[in-house]
């Protein structure tokens, strides 16, 4: 089980990262970039629980931190994703899934990421942070996250049920 679970998580995270960086980011949508990676992390956390959520968040965040075209200090995204993966996994009981709640968590997480990243990197001395853009980024990130969640959460839970049936009791 562990092998297949790890493989699934790594594959999904990698696909999400590539899609986000080379497609969604280049669409030029108004406001924030749709954060497919974070949505995937949270969807996996919903399926596998808080511990896996935290580990996947850490890995995905590290991948994003190290990926080309990301310029923030390494580790910040990993920290935020890790916390969000853990909280999302802990907040939802895998056997009692309430779709509006899941979508709400995903949307709010995507919004919260904007604030958290801006706050942490400001503290660390990032001069790029423009708080005047924060409200519109927050709003669009939440919206895009919720929309992505509508598609990603069912897809990920279906994959999880197929690849690792024993994880879903």
């Amino acid at each position: 089980m562990w092998g297949r679970q790890t493989l699934l998580c790594v594959t999904l995270v990698f696909l999400a990262l590539v899609t986000q960086q080379s497609f969604l980011a280049r669409l030029g949508l108004p406001g924030a970039t749709p954060d497919l990676l974070l949505v995937t992390v949270i969807a996996l956390a919903f399926a596998y629980g808080p511990l896996t959520g935290a580990v996947v968040g850490f890995g995905a965040g590290m991948a994003l931190d190290f990926a080309p075209s990301t310029a923030g200090p390494i580790g910040v995204v990993a920290l935020i994703f890790m916390v969000m993966g853990f909280v999302s996994g802990a907040a939802v009981d895998p056997r009692d899934r309430n779709p509006p709640l899941l979508i709400g968590i995903i949307g709010l997480s995507c919004g919260a990421f904007v604030i958290a990243f801006a706050a942490i990197t400001s503290v660390l001395g990032n001069e790029r942070v423009d708080w005047e853009q924060a409200p519109s980024l927050l709003l669009t990130a939440t919206l895009y996250g919720a929309l992505l969640g509508l598609a990603v959460v069912p897809a990920v839970s279906a994959l999880v049920a197929k690849v690792t049936p024993e994880a879903v009791q």
Binding site: D65, P73, G75, A78, L79
Partner: peptide, 26 residues
């Protein structure tokens, strides 16, 4: 609240990320 293992893993990851941040900020 959470198991000992969970807490251990979380703490390890947290420390790792902070280490990365600090090392990168140098």
């Amino acid at each position: 609240m959470f198991s000992r293992r969970t807490r251990f893993v979380l703490a390890a990851l947290f420390i790792t990320t902070l280490t990365f941040v600090i090392l990168d900020l140098r």
